[in-house]
């Protein structure tokens, strides 16, 4: 009885989580240029349009380029900070750690407006690089958290052993720390990549009228004329997102990354 209730509850949650995806999938295969569900006819022309239409094409390449560069930037900022804090808990580093985490915890519109006033003041408003830097700084939190977790997992006894055997700091970093931490850094960069891909408000405030990223393009086409191509692009994006997390889940230890202890022991 309890088991059944449990199954029903999980099923209901799964349905709740899946229903938007199901409807998007249904609308995206419509044969006519209508937002109809259940779909009328079946065709993949809207997926082809994404590839052929210059507008969607440039929005997709903008988003992919911004997300890759921002993920690299975020990781390059987070890695030394996490390493420094792991080596030594200085007050300054802790303050900068808080700066790295803050934009992610606060409502993003605040960061967006701060960056808008900043870029207007220094003259980068509307530029492509402004979006990259803004996203990079906004998403520092994710690699910062994952790299910190990775460093915590490094065995201190191994380090002491290496030191006794004469390895200097650089050699210890290269042979012991980096091999263990790099998977965590990659997960962090992947998290940042996916979130940048889907981020709207900061990109919109910083350069919404000049650099059209995919979420901005979807929102604009929502306002100025519906087309099933929007649902097709949403499906492609949801798929890319799920793929990235699926890979992290497959190669990494997702429960540990998300804060559960000893997740490997009870599997």
């Amino acid at each position: 009885m309890n088991r059944l209730l449990n199954r029903l509850f999980l099923g209901a949650i799964a349905l709740f989580m899946a229903s938007p995806i199901i409807i998007l999938l249904g609308v995206s295969v419509n044969a006519e240029k209508r937002l109809a569900f259940p779909p009328q006819g079946f065709s993949l022309r809207w997926y082809l349009e994404l590839w052929n239409d210059a507008g969607w094409h440039s929005a997709i390449s903008n988003s992919l380029l911004i997300a890759s560069l921002a993920a690299l930037l975020a990781t390059s900022i987070a890695a030394p900070l996490a390493y420094g804090l792991w080596r030594r808990r200085s007050v300054w580093l802790r303050i900068f750690h808080a700066f790295g985490v803050a934009p992610f915890v606060l409502p993003p519109v605040i960061t967006a407006l701060g960056l808008l006033s900043f870029w207007i003041a220094v003259g980068g408003y509307g530029a492509f690089y402004s979006v990259v830097i803004s996203h990079g700084v906004f998403l520092v939190t994710l690699p910062l958290v994952t790299i910190t977790l990775g460093l915590d997992a490094v065995n201190k006894e191994d380090l002491e052993a290496a030191e006794t055997l004469g390895a200097d700091a650089a050699a210890r970093l290269r042979t012991i720390i980096l091999p263990q931490v790099i998977p965590y850094a990659i997960s962090g960069a992947a998290f940042a990549f996916v979130l940048s891909l889907n981020e709207y408000i900061i990109a919109y405030m910083v350069a919404g009228f000049t650099v059209e990223t995919l979420p901005i393009k979807i929102f604009n086409s929502l306002r100025y004329g519906y087309t099933p191509a929007m649902t097709a692009v949403a499906i492609v994006f949801a798929f890319v997102t799920a793929l990235v997390f699926g890979l992290i889940g497959y190669f990494g230890d997702l429960p540990r990354l998300l804060g559960a202890w000893k997740s490997k022991d009870d599997s």
């Binding site: 998007l24 996916v194 709207y200 929102f219 929502l222 649902t231 949403a234 997102t241 997390f245």
Partner: peptide, 11 residues
Amino acid sequence: SLSEVIIGFSW
């Protein structure tokens, strides 16, 4: 991490 645009639109 699904964009708010997509969530809002599908709902």
